[in-house]
């Protein structure tokens, strides 16, 4: 499933770039995320974090454990975000490039990537997968916008 979109942050690109690389901010903004623990750099040079997430949309709930990796840093214009998680209801891997483009006083954060899911959620959630992915991304950026606002 391809995903793409953009969000306006009221911060200059360099700040926007920094906060989206900040594990504390990422952990706060990822819906249902408990924490991100740095597990160091992977062999291919990615900064990697261990994560635990409790996803909940309406009655649907799932615990996911996995990793968040930040790769291909190109400060302040882009980096690659790789999120992998798995739990009893399935597993997901999302990979996308975040691009930071100056837009007036703020930054236009664009994302483009692909999400693959497996397990029960892939087999029975087809009808709501796309809309749910968008919902989660919307929530994430909503919180990032909030976090950015606090930092202004």
């Amino acid at each position: 499933m391809k995903i793409s979109g953009s969000y306006e942050l009221a911060l200059p690109p360099a700040r926007a770039y920094t906060i989206l690389q900040d594990p504390a901010i990422l952990a706060r903004c990822m819906p249902g995320c408990d924490h991100l623990n740095r597990i160091g750099e992977t062999e291919d040079g990615h900064v990697a974090y261990e994560m635990k997430m409790k996803m909940a949309i309406s009655s649907v709930q799932g615990l996911f454990a996995g990793t968040v990796k930040l790769a291909d840093p190109n400060e302040p214009s882009s980096f690659r975000l790789i999120v992998e998680g798995s739990g009893k209801i399935g597993f997901m891997k999302g990979e996308g490039v975040l691009t930071f483009v100056e837009s007036g006083a703020g930054t236009d954060v664009r994302y483009e990537g692909e999400v693959n899911v497996g397990g029960v959620i892939a087999g029975v959630g087809q009808r709501l997968l796309d809309v749910t992915a968008k919902h989660i991304i919307k929530k994430f950026f909503g919180k990032v916008v909030g976090a950015a606002g606090e930092m202004e």
Binding site: S59, V60, Q61, G62, K88, I89, V120, I121, V124, G125
Partner: peptide, 11 residues
């Protein structure tokens, strides 16, 4: 809606 979700253990 709820019961099918529970049977699939999604809820």
């Amino acid at each position: 809606s709820l019961i099918p979700l529970m049977k699939l253990r999604l809820a």
